[in-house]
């Protein structure tokens, strides 16, 4: 069974098709880097896969199920542009909230475990409002990983992260990969993404211009995909 199957998905903004007949399939354990210029449809595609927006034609299946199926959503971890944490709640309360929503048996234990993994156990009772930018980002990474999702959807994950948060995220992503998780990440930072990626998909004006394995050649020269398939 495919970890992700996008079958002929269209999404419009009015009459303007932001996604045009997208077909993508990835096997479990794949790390797919979605690349493309601003406005190519990366975020729209990722949000449609995550179930934040319904495709207007075609369908998305994650592990064989609809994205809006609650069972599917337990298997998805989403890290978007915002940190998705409540300013008025403490680090521990934020993680416990999501642990509870995901139906994790021991929410407190799981929250503490992830505070440790992200190096925030000492400030667990501090309110997010008082956190530095880097701390918030690490907590956000913990929030997205805490329910140990099968499929990770990451929208520009390395943008605006500080060094320590990048290190935490890369470590977690490698771990997840070793454990056979599937990852789809949209990105501008080609080098970071291609080092992780097993596959690459290039979006150009809402279409998939290229989808294939990430080769050593590409890692050595990240501009190659754009040069070869970019403006078709």
């Amino acid at each position: 069974m495919d970890a992700l199957a996008v079958e002929g998905v269209w999404r419009y903004y009015g009459d303007y098709p932001a996604l045009r007949d997208i077909h993508l399939t990835t096997e479990p354990g794949t790390c797919l880097a979605l690349i493309g210029r601003n406005g190519a449809g990366k975020t729209t595609l990722l949000r449609t896969i995550a179930g934040f927006a319904r495709p207007m034609k075609g369908k998305v299946l994650i592990l064989g199920r609809e994205p809006r199926d609650p069972e599917t959503r337990r298997d998805i971890g989403f890290l978007g542009h915002g940190i998705a944490l409540y300013e008025e709640l403490s680090a521990l309360e934020n993680l416990m909230l999501f642990a509870r929503l995901y139906g994790i048996a021991d929410p407190r234990g799981r929250a503490l475990e992830w505070l440790e993994k992200t190096g925030l156990e000492r400030v667990r009772d501090g309110l997010v409002r008082e956190f530095s930018r880097g701390m918030r980002q690490r907590l956000a990474v913990g929030r997205a990983f805490l329910h140990e999702p099968q499929v990770l959807l990451l929208d520009e994950p390395f943008t605006a992260l500080d060094d320590r948060a990048i290190a935490v995220l890369q470590r977690l992503l490698r771990e997840a990969r070793e454990r056979g998780r599937t990852m789809i990440l949209s990105t501008h930072q080609l080098r970071e993404a291609l080092e992780l990626a097993s596959h690459v998909a290039l979006l150009n004006r809402g279409r998939v211009a290229f989808h294939g394995a990430c080769t050593a050649e590409m890692v050595a020269d990240p501009g190659l995909v754009y040069a070869r398939y970019g403006e078709g």
Partner: peptide
């Protein structure tokens, strides 16, 4: 549009 996939770990 190539749709190559590599068989990976179980």
């Amino acid at each position: 549009m190539g749709q190559t996939t590599i068989a990976e770990a179980p």
